[in-house]
């Protein structure tokens, strides 16, 4: 597994983590490659992983009957994907479909949770990075909810 260390170390998400913490995380990581059109996960499935996208783009979709899949957000290279692994009942709310060939690091959710319990300092760092991601996603959602470019009447 040691070959994943430099890859994870270079990820923006883990930039501020200590060497030991990154080594801990590496123990939960696998490298994945998916093809265009494949699903990283689908809504309702168990949320077992947290992903860091190294290459490619993923669409987060929600399927609305009669409307088909609606794209909620696109996530790109350098960005983290998924937080349902962190919060019970650990099920995906959205589907994630690859728009392109996708290379990503998949971090096992259960493994990460266990390490965070054992090492609260690592847990705090990870939680803070997750909160950052959530904050920007919420802020973006609010801006889109305002429908700034639409007609107000």
């Amino acid at each position: 597994m040691t070959d994943l260390y430099p890859i994870i170390r270079s990820q923006e998400f883990f930039k501020e983590f200590s060497e030991e913490d990154v080594h801990e995380v590496v123990g939960c990581a696998t490298n994945i490659v998916l093809h265009q059109g494949q699903y990283v996960f689908r809504e309702g499935e168990p949320a077992n992983h947290f992903y860091l996208i190294r290459h490619g783009r993923v669409s987060l979709e929600l399927f609305a009957p009669g409307r088909g899949p609606v794209i909620v957000e696109t996530v790109e290279e350098g960005e983290p994907l998924g937080w349902s692994w962190l919060i019970p009942p650990y099920k995906w709310h959205f589907a994630a479909r690859c728009d392109t060939l996708l290379r990503a690091i998949a971090l096992d959710g259960e493994c990460l949770r266990r390490k965070c319990e054992e090492n609260p300092k690592l847990g705090y760092h990870l939680m803070r990075k997750m909160a950052e991601m959530m904050e920007s996603r919420v802020q973006a959602s609010i801006l889109r909810m305002l429908d700034l470019y639409g007609n107000k009447h």
Binding site: S59, I71, D147
Partner: peptide, 17 residues
Amino acid sequence: VDRATSEWRGNVGVVTK
């Protein structure tokens, strides 16, 4: 774009991103 269906091949999200 703020919203799109799956035919859209581009980004979905706010411009600030």
